[in-house]
Design a protein around this nucleic acid. Structure first.
Lengths: 188, 188
DNA sequence: CGAAACAAACCGACCATCTGGTATGTTTAT
DNA sequence: ATAAACATACCAGATGGTCGGTTTGTTTCG
């Protein structure tokens, strides 16, 4: 990833590189391809160096996941601020965040979360995040239509991973806007 | 899985057992855990025996996926028949099929599709299936609301895999019915 | 100030285990 | 008898992980 080469002992940079590289590999070639060797090579570090930062593979993968979760969290907070309407704020931010994750180049947020659904600890991490987030926005995002809209966003994101090569970008944007509009209806 | 033990040379049964066991392992421990040895052991066959049925691992996994696709296809056809309304038939069947996949015990249809999203061939298999199915039902299931409903079903299914242990079954059923109701609106 | 002391960052070699896969034998059904 | 349905033995490579050592940075102290 970033050229940690020639740099002299910058642990945080190396750690970041390892995280990013692992995420990228996972995204491009799937979780099974995320091997210690591959990640180390990609980050221009030896396997020993990698294992200094992360005690084992599980720790590495979980760290990547945690990192991605933080990014998502930050992005949602950002979108949340810019939204003037109260009702359904979080849901809109959620939809947009996942839509971005799909389209933008900065889409680390891809294959990893899927493959890692098998790992109970990562399952728990996501569940916790989602639950706490829902609790925090219970006043503005409790309606069932909003829940559906969020589920649809998940499905849309999933479809993006599958590259339904037929429809693609054109229809996607329209669908997203339609989801957003659902969010604004029924201001009880 | 099924006790192929003590049975004398029943290739089809063994093949089924292999398929089922592979699906189960993938579902419980993730795709990386689906090793030739593990599958063979679970089906009470040796690795050699397995490789007699499937020339290599990829063939095995793809066969599992193909099998699951067929099951889904059959289930949808079944649901399709029972539905008197024309408009949105396929979407309703799709929703119900995925809802069942989640709740029923016969839920082989789980982690595999996810993990296998990395495999281009399986991606293609799903894309093809979905596209052809959409084409077949273009007259009854073309509306954007229906697309959203289907996406939401996907998201709901995904959420099921994650076991949002908080909400669960009670809310799920209500949500599904709500999705179905979306399907019936706007009979243009 | 400067050098010794210490710890963190990183490397390189090594290892037990497991992986997918082959090659060859043995049993069973037709 | 012949071919399919299995089992057994084996292999080369990769994998996750350990361990001892070397380099670099930081602190301590005279």
């Amino acid at each position: 990833m970033t050229e940690a080469h020639e740099r002299k002992k910058q642990p945080e940079i190396v750690r970041r590189a390892l995280l990013d590289c692992a995420a990228q590999i996972s995204q491009e070639q799937g979780l099974p391809a995320v091997t210690l060797q591959a990640v180390a090579d990609a980050a221009h570090v030896t396997k020993g160096g990698l294992l200094h930062h992360f005690p084992n593979k599980q720790a590495l993968v979980q760290a990547v996941f945690h990192d991605l979760l933080e990014q998502l969290d930050a992005q949602i907070d950002d979108l949340l601020e810019k939204d003037p309407d109260r009702h359904g704020r979080f849901t809109r931010a959620y939809i947009r965040a996942f839509a971005n994750a799909e389209s933008e180049g900065a889409s680390n947020w891809n294959a990893l979360p899927l493959s890692s659904l098998t790992d109970p600890e990562m399952k728990a991490m996501w569940s916790e995040w989602y639950a706490s987030r829902l609790a925090r926005h219970s006043e503005t995002d409790a309606g069932p239509e909003l829940g559906i809209a969020r589920y649809a966003a998940d499905g849309l994101w999933l479809a993006g991973l599958l590259e339904y090569s037929g429809v693609e970008a054109a229809g996607q944007d329209a669908l997203i806007e339609q989801l957003i509009s659902i969010t604004r209806k029924k201001q009880t």
